[in-house]
Amino acid sequence: MEFLDEIKAKFPNVLESVDGSNENESVLLLKDKTKIKRVCKEVKNHFDILFMLMAVDKPPKIFELNYVFSSYKTQNILTIRVNIERDKAVIDSISSLFESADWEERETYDLFGVEFIGHKNLKRILLPEDWPGRPLRKDFEVTDEVRNWTGLDLKF
């Protein structure tokens, strides 16, 4: 767990361990979302890839972003958890540090509407460009309008 202590030592007040994390799969909670890029820069010294970026919708206020890093050499897994506001879902992009963050961030933008500042190509990845709404938000409802939407100008 040396790397954990090293990372925490660099950012003394903003990072804290979350209960239930074990030796190989540790979870750190990042309190200040503006520091995400600097933390990830530090994480890059110990981990190779970002293999998952999960977003969890916690309805009243919060989107919980989980950046999951992994190391080929030690097989450790580190999750950095950030809470951002639901109304103003904006966070710095880390796609310049981790290449795989490119598509993950686009997916999160596509399905949740979280905006990543500094992303070079932030557009929808799974759904059509002009699709209305963000489907994985909890307040999204599958109405008839959504079901019948084709985005095509059909005349018959």
């Binding site: 599958v142 019948n148 084709t150 059909l154």
Partner: peptide, 15 residues
């Protein structure tokens, strides 16, 4: 059929 992202039958878009 109830999904937000699938066409419920292609006869909606072509004969």
């Amino acid at each position: 059929h109830d999904s937000y992202n699938s066409i419920a039958g292609i006869d909606r878009i072509m004969p």
